[in-house]
């Protein structure tokens, strides 16, 4: 199997040289293969979110290399990173990170605004996703009033609108009850069936004990074991 993402001895340092210097990710090497479902597992503060943002080109490593399709992106200009983010990745954030004041549909279409895709096209794609995630009746609601489970589906739809190869999910069940968590697993299963590569950061057994998980990477203090 071909590796989509390869991380070589990557470290991330925050506040370097200052008294509050920390290394959320330390000397991590791993690779993620096409079509794989990988879990990053570890206690709170172990660096799961930080590693996930390195994988997704949301931040740059202080040391080491990140190879996407064999190309080192760590030193690429910001513009290229954004472009890779937009074409390759769909993010489901720990805190959802939806824009509260706008509607469900607008939130979902937001990644496609700075592209040449027509409004109609965007709308059709958004509706298709809302349909499959069961939030179509909520499309004109503001996000503010939605339940946690609904907000999460909006976040998932937004992550999928650009049809990404890789879906990155950070603590996707953190705000969900057991029933909703199981629904989420079903959504992930379906995505896996569509051939998507999925990386999930979680410490929820309900997630990492599922049969869809191909591999578990354990983290502690920024390192993997």
């Amino acid at each position: 199997m071909e590796a989509i993402i390869r991380i070589e001895k990557a470290s991330k340092c925050i506040n370097r040289g200052r008294p509050n210097e920390i290394w959320p990710v330390k000397d991590v090497s791993l690779q993620i293969l096409r079509g794989e479902v990988v879990v990053l597992k570890g206690p709170s503060g172990s660096g799961k979110t930080s590693l996930l943002s390195l994988i997704g080109c949301m931040s740059r490593p202080t040391e080491g290399r990140i190879l996407i399709h064999g190309r080192d992106v760590a030193k690429l200009p910001e513009r290229f990173l954004t472009d890779i983010r937009r074409r390759l990745f769909g993010f489901i954030f720990q805190q959802f990170n939806l824009i509260q004041g706008i509607t469900v549909r607008e939130n979902i279409m937001l990644p496609l605004y700075p592209t040449e895709r027509s409004f109609r096209d965007m709308k059709d794609r958004a509706e298709e996703l809302m349909e499959s995630l069961g939030i179509i009746e909520r499309q004109h609601f503001r996000v503010k009033g939605l339940s946690g489970g609904e907000q999460q589906r909006v976040a998932i739809a937004r992550a999928l609108i650009n049809d990404p190869e890789v879906v990155l999910a950070d603590e996707p069940t953190a705000h969900l009850d057991t029933k909703l968590s199981k629904d989420l697993i079903e959504i992930l299963r379906k995505l896996k069936g569509e051939g998507k590569t999925i990386v999930i950061a979680t410490h929820d057994p309900l997630v990492y004990e599922q049969d869809i998980i191909d591999r578990i990477i354990e983290m502690r203090d920024g390192r993997i074991r």
């Binding site: 910001e78 513009r79 954004t82 937009r86 993010f91 700075p114």
Partner: peptide, 11 residues
């Protein structure tokens, strides 16, 4: 958020 979901700085 905009940056994270693929908006460029220029956007």
């Amino acid at each position: 958020i905009l940056k994270a979901i693929g908006w460029e700085t220029s956007d």
